[in-house]
Structures are given as C-alpha cells and as structure tokens.
Design a protein around this nucleic acid. Sequence first.
DNA 1: CGCCTTAGTGGCACGTTTTGCCATTTCGAC
DNA 2: GTCGAAATGGCAAAACGTGCCACTAAGGCG
Lengths: 218, 218
Amino acid sequence: MSQPSGPRPTASPSLTERRKAATQLDIARAAAELFAEKGPDDTTAEEIAGRAGVALRTFYRYFRSKQDAVGPLLSSGGDRWRALLAEAGPGAGLAQALESAAVASLSTPDDVANEGMRWTRGLLRAARHDPALRAVWYRVNQESEEKLQPVVARLAGPDADPLEVRLVAAAATDAIRVAFETWATTDAETLGEDSPARLVVRCLRELTGGLRLVRNGR
Amino acid sequence: MSQPSGPRPTASPSLTERRKAATQLDIARAAAELFAEKGPDDTTAEEIAGRAGVALRTFYRYFRSKQDAVGPLLSSGGDRWRALLAEAGPGAGLAQALESAAVASLSTPDDVANEGMRWTRGLLRAARHDPALRAVWYRVNQESEEKLQPVVARLAGPDADPLEVRLVAAAATDAIRVAFETWATTDAETLGEDSPARLVVRCLRELTGGLRLVRNGR
DNA sequence: CGCCTTAGTGGCACGTTTTGCCATTTCGAC
DNA sequence: GTCGAAATGGCAAAACGTGCCACTAAGGCG
C-alpha cells in the first residue's frame, strides 16, 4: 500500500494477508504521527485515513475508533514477548521464563521492536493529556494479560490453580506496564542504563518474586 | 433532583454539592438500568438523560461519554476502601492494612456498598459483550491505582522507593479487580462463602505477600 | 483463456455522539 | 431582597461510527 518493500517470497501467510497487515501498520503510523503533532482530539479520523491513503470507510474496517488506530504500535512489544514465552520450554522456573522472554524481546536491536518502543514512548506522553488515548493503553494491557493467561497456564502445568495463574498474568503484565510508563517519563535510550529491559526485570522480580505459583516452580 | 431524602443537616459539604452528587448518582443508576435492559449500544445518551430527569446537555456536563455514566457505581467500592486505608494508623504492616481495609469496606451490610456491588456484577457481565463498557472498568481501576499510590506511600513511610510503592498499588488494585471479576461470574451473595471479601483476601495475600516493601513492614 | 466466487475497498446516507455558545434559572453570600 | 457565580437547558454544528451497495482485484475452475 505504501511501504514498497521488495516482494519477498519467504514465509508469511498470503499476499493479501501481508497487504492487510501493511495497511494496518500504515494507518497506525499515520495516527501516531498526527497524534504526536496535534494531539488526538485535534486529529480527525478523516485526516488519519487520508495520510494513510485509504478511505474513511476503510479506516473503520480496520479500527473501531480513532484512538484504537495506534493499538498495534502499543501491543507489538507485548506480542513479541508472549510469542517468545510460548516457545520457551519448561526448563527453568516460571519467573525465569517470564524474565528471559522479556529481556530477549527488549534487548534485541531489532528495527521493528525499536520503532515500536519509540512510538510507545511518544504515545504514552500524549496519553498523559488525553483520556481516550490512555484508554487504548489500558485496553492493550488488559488484552495482553488475557492472552498471557493460557501461556502462563501451560508453563505452570495442568494442575495449577486457575486463579493463581490469572494473578501471575496480571502481575507480570503490570510489571511490564509500570516499567514502560516509568521509562516513558525519561529520555533514556531503548538500550542504555534506564532501558525498558532493566526496568522490566526489576519490576518483574519485585512483583512476581513472591508468588506461590512462581516460587514452587513447576 | 429525584431522591427526596430528607434534608439532613448532618455533615456533607454544601447543599449544592450534595445535589450535584445526587444528580450524578441518578444518572449513573439510570444508565446502569438501561445498560442492563437493552445493552449499552442499544441505549442512547438521550434515553439515559431522560430517565435521570436532566437534559442531554447536562448529561454531558457530568460525564464525558455515554459509558462513563456508570463510572461512579463501579468506583464507589474502591473509594470506600481507599478512605478506610487513609484513616488507618501505621499500627500493623502494610499487607495487614490493605487487607483490613478491604474486609472492612466489603463486609459491612451497608446499603450503599451493597448496591454498588450488585450494580458492579451486572455491569461486569454486560461488559463481557461490550468493549466500551470494559474500557470504563479499566479506567476506573487505573484511576483507583493512581489514587492509591499516595495512600500506600504514607503507610510505607517517607523513605520508601517510589517505584516499589507504585508496584504495591498496582498489585493491590489488581487483586481487587481480579477478585471482583471472578465473583461477577458466579451467583454468590455479597456476603456468603464466595463473597467478594473472601476472594479479595485470597488475591491480596497471593499478590502482595511476597513484595519486599510489604514484608519489611515499616 | 474467460468465468465465477470471494474478499477488500470506496462512496454515500444516516443516526448518534459530543461540544460550543448563549439564554435562563437557581444557589449562596451579603 | 439583591447580586454574582454556578448549574441547567436548548440549539446548532462538527465529528464519530455504521449499514448499504456498487466496484475492483485475486484466486480457483472448466
């Protein structure tokens, strides 16, 4: 649609699927740019659609609301984390698995991941003055927590208490969230001293270190 | 505005303030009723305003959106809890204070509190099928967490790490949230075996039991 | 190769949401 | 009782969000 990346015949689902994903990202970037420039409520959905090169009607096929458009930028990091966690074998304890996956997903100098983190910082700063944008951040985290539950359940084994699994997922998600919110208030790099990775590790250890399910291992 | 409660010259800020609070509650109840009857998106803001006996324009002076109208019903419980916590002296440890305040705010057969819990259950059930309503629940919890931070900070003492204070507030809020969400899926009474109070205690102990700040006491 | 089914897109119309502005009423202080 | 401030209501308009239909591109099949 806009990113004329060479048509790689590598993996990927199908050509149409990739197009759709690219369009979604185009819209998301356009929205994030405009939100950063003028603030979310001085930006109309039509402007976002226009900059992304789609019709207004199409915009609302991809996102249910104006603010939702930046969702993919905010959730991509969590998606990476969960994907890594899902692959992880039951080698180490639950706490170790959570932490390793987080560090792995954050410390790679990956282009996409880095871009996501920068957008996240900008959006979190804009969200300080915009309730609707904050709502998107809450929703993204909430959905991340829900999607995290089955992953944690698998790592914890089949006889784990569902309520405890849920609390672990909630605590872990909170750790990530608080770490990013803290990082967003600073000007620290994505990899340096006050990097998200360091903060996440600290928050994770603090929050999940005492959970029974985590201490018992699997 | 509608509840013709006798003009008690007891405490309360001013007459106007009480009127405003009453109006807000009237709107909130009207919204919750209609949401339960027809679902949030088959309900128009005008209907809510009409049932509450105010003009549409006035509705939007009290709430920034249709779904927001039920906010007060969802947040009242947390407000009670925080108020109790703010009064608590530094006698016991932080965990004990959190738990005691929660139990106290939940186990009283108070009319208002009970009403709030019933509304909460109905709204949480409706929220399962309505993203916008879920967003209100997220927002309420988030704001509760933010308002909880200074209270926790006071209980933790002046030399506590702000980041740890924040994590405690997040964990405690999550405990309440998960407990209520779990309770909402059951038909248990507000005071019985699977009561919110029991669940909250269990979640709180699980989540905050291992936090350094909590263990160290003050 | 042409045909057909399917999915994605754009355009339009419409009801609803939400806000700005101003007139009117009500409350509280004096 | 009178005055200023705050709350309310009504009106209009911008923007949001959705249902509907026509159009086009993509992939499967004879």
